[in-house]
Design a protein around this nucleic acid. Sequence first.
DNA 1: ATTTTATAGTTGTATATACAAATGTTAATT
DNA 2: AATTAACATTTGTATATACAACTATAAAAT
Lengths: 144, 144
Amino acid sequence: MNEEEQVLIHCLYFTASRFARSITKLAEKTFDFGDLAPSYLYMIMIVKFNPEITQKELCHKLSIAPSTSTRFIDKLEKLKLVTRKMDGKQTLISLTAEGEKVYLQFRVSLKNLFNSYSEVLGIEFSKDLSKTLHEASNKIERET
Amino acid sequence: MNEEEQVLIHCLYFTASRFARSITKLAEKTFDFGDLAPSYLYMIMIVKFNPEITQKELCHKLSIAPSTSTRFIDKLEKLKLVTRKMDGKQTLISLTAEGEKVYLQFRVSLKNLFNSYSEVLGIEFSKDLSKTLHEASNKIERET
DNA sequence: ATTTTATAGTTGTATATACAAATGTTAATT
DNA sequence: AATTAACATTTGTATATACAACTATAAAAT
């Protein structure tokens, strides 16, 4: 193995970005929701479990920037999947009935996605890796 | 832990994207190259180790789409860090003297980046995780 | 030799995402 | 009560990235 490869393999920034690209491609193939990219579906899920969640809290749970959340919610609102309710400084987000329906489909797709990558990477491996990444993100976000 | 968190933690698409965002932020803080985002630096490194590399090969080594490579090279060419040489269907990419200089600085920054995340995640952990992600990407790209 | 097919790269267009500056709203200080 | 500071969200703008359609070149098949 040459030096270049060594560097690429050992750089977590590089391997992590590449891995995210690979698995995003897989996710987009598996999730067939017309216009909705996978990230929107996670937002829907979080709202499902936290009705009237504040936008700030949503950002935190998804690890996205506030401006990104505004754009996501704009789109979901236009599609009539969530509603905004202003409450002083804050904005509370909830699902519409249509949003609930999409959520149910999403859960099915999630299983499919899990099966797709588990087939390639192995079930236990996938679970472990996912947990590891989750914890590593927490550490980085806490410490920086 | 509630169901929502369970789902988020176990979905590799989600944890991988989030982790990539976290570490990209760290990388952007560490790499201070004015206009050049980290990905460009990796491209420079690969060209450094493979003078006259074809664009296709570059795409493969970086796992990026051809159109993305065109845009990257456009930018690097404009900054006079690489040169294009047409050769039939193919385009060969090489570093300029200025590109070589940037490469050297980049290697220093890479060490800094490694130190940043190793401090938070641990040295061995970081190395292992990086290797794991590298291999997992390979598997996914091979099998899909 | 001409036509067809395959391959490499580019261009148009779209999207997720971010940061910085602006806006609006509540809380704190004087 | 008036001013200031803090906070939440939005808007403007930029960027990495992708796909699909296009162009240009080379290779293969007739």
